[in-house]
Amino acid sequence: MKFILKVLKDFPWFLWSGWGAVASIFLFIALWDVGYQLYGELVLPSPKETFGAVVGFFDDEDLTRDMILTLTRAVIGFAAALVIGSVLGLMAGFFATASIMSRPIVTILVGMPPIAWVVLAMIWFGMGDTSVIFTVVIASFPIVFVGAMQGTRTIEGELKEMVDSFGLSLWQKFTNLYFPHIFSYIFPAWVSGLGMSWKIVVMAELLSSSDGIGAALAVARSQLDTTVALALVVVMIGSLLFLEYIVLEPIKKEVEAWRD
C-alpha cells in the first residue's frame, strides 16, 4: 500500500522528467514529415494526416472494435505467458536438474521464428482467436521463463547464509530475500515480454485472423492505403508506449531504486 502511494506521489515528477523523451519523439515526427515532403503521400503520408486518421478510427465502429479486440488478445496472451513463464521459470530455477534440462528447450523456443508458430497455429487451431493468442503466448513465454529462472538461480549464497544466521522463518526469507531478488529479474523480463506480445499479436492477426488490427492492416495493404496502415501502426505503438512508459516505468523506477 505504502509502495503504491509512493509510486503515485512521485508520478508528476516522473512525467516532468520525460521532456527529453517527448523531444526525441517530436524530432522523429519532424524527420517523418521530411520523408513525406520528399517522397509524397503514397509512400509516406504526412504525420498530420496519419494522426488525423487515428482520431478518425474512434468514430468508426468496426475499427474501434478491431482495436479493442487486438488489445484484448495481446493482454490475454501476455497475461498467460506471464503466469506460465513465471511459475515454470521459478520451478526450473529452484531445481538444478530442471534448469539444466530446460535450457535447450528454451533455446529452441527463443530460436523458433514466430512466423513459423503462426503457420503451425493456423494448422492446429484454424483461423481466429485461439491461433493469435497461442502465438502470442508461445513467443513471449520464453522471455519471461528465462527471467524467472535467472532470478531464482542467482540468489547469492552469502545472503542466504546471513538470513539463516538470523533465523528468519520461511515466509520472512521469501519476503525479505527471495521475492525482491527474483522480482528484480522477472520484472524487466515482463516488460520485454509485453513488447513482444504487442508485436506478435499484429503479425499473427495479419495472417491468421479476419478481425483485429492485423487484419485491418492486411486490408489497408491490399487497398494500398498507406495512411490507414501507418495509423494502425501508430495505434499499436502508442498503446505500447503508454503501457511501458506511463504505467510500468514508474513502478520499475520505484522497485529498482536500490540499484546502482
Partner: peptide, 11 residues
C-alpha cells in the same frame, strides 16, 4: 553473526 563482508540486503 557478523560476517567478513557486510552482507546487507541491497533492496
Amino acid at each position: 553473526f557478523a560476517f567478513q563482508e557486510p552482507r546487507l540486503l541491497p533492496w
